Simulated scan of single mutants.
Amino acid sequence: MKLLVADDDPQLVRALRITLASQGYTVVTAADGAEAVRVAASEHPDLVLLDLGMPQVDGLDVIHALRGWMDGPIIVVSGRTGSGDKVDALDAGADDYVTKPFQMDELLARLRALARRTSAAPSEPSVTFGDVAVDLAAHTVVRGGEAVHLTPTEWRMLEFLVRNPGSLVTRQTLLREIWGTDQATDTGYLRLYMSQLRKKLEPDPSHPVHLLTESGMGYRLTP
């Protein structure tokens, strides 16, 4: 896989380039937001690691620009720890959010999980709930006759719930499925992703009838 690392911290970029190259990834880099968009357009990376607070063009604007034509995963790697920043990044189209400082092994695990999900080839039929149709084979979601765009992480969360209709799916199970590690901890990401899915798929996101929360346990999909 080819990865774009976009960050204005040269020491971090150097460390990531060395570590990722040792894991077999091809790495291209950018030191500011404008360069990130240019490099992405010319190099066509499979996945982007992106800082939010970069010169020239802010990371959120970079995400918006990339999502105009790029479907590959985007992982935000940022020192901004506020929940508002995370929500904004996910709303813009990011698939994951890693807070600095981070453990390199956790970042590598998330990269592997995203790579597995992106390259997977499900062969399941369509499943419907309410006015939503989910085609597991084609990786498409249609609501009321209109196509709905999901990020890779949103898709994976919905896919796992769809494959277990009516059953309680625990938070730990979802964390393991999404990030590919038993050591993953719930830092609020699941709630953010579920909120995004409800905005896109529920008639009234504040009063969901299909994507339900089981307090203290996990989530359940009901027809």
Rank of each mutant, 00 (worst) to 15 (best):
T26Q: 13
L60F: 03
E35H: 10
R80K: 13
V62C: 08
L52K: 08
L50H: 05
I63Q: 02
V48H: 02
L49V: 06
L52G: 00
L47C: 07
K86D: 03
S22M: 15
E35I: 07
R38S: 13
D71T: 15
D85P: 07
A21F: 03
G82K: 13
Q56A: 06
P45H: 05
D46V: 05
M54N: 06
M54D: 08
G68I: 13
A65Y: 06
A31R: 15
V27G: 02
L20I: 12
I63A: 02
G82D: 15
A34T: 15
S42K: 15
I74Q: 04
V87W: 14
L60W: 03
G72H: 06
A34E: 15
G84I: 10
R38H: 04
L49F: 07
L90T: 04
G33N: 06
G72L: 07
Q56P: 01
G79L: 08
V62Y: 12
T26V: 06
I63M: 06
S78E: 02
K86E: 10
E43R: 05
G84P: 01
L90G: 00
T26F: 05
R67N: 09
G79D: 10
D88V: 04
D71V: 04
H64D: 14
V28I: 07
D58C: 00
G33D: 12
Q56C: 00
V57H: 05
L50M: 12
L50E: 03
L50G: 11
G24L: 12
A30T: 12
M54E: 11
V76W: 01
S83W: 02
S42N: 10
V57W: 03
L50I: 01
S42Q: 15
A41R: 15
T19R: 14
A31K: 08
G82Q: 14
A31E: 10
D46F: 01
R80E: 11
D88C: 07
S78D: 05
I74W: 00
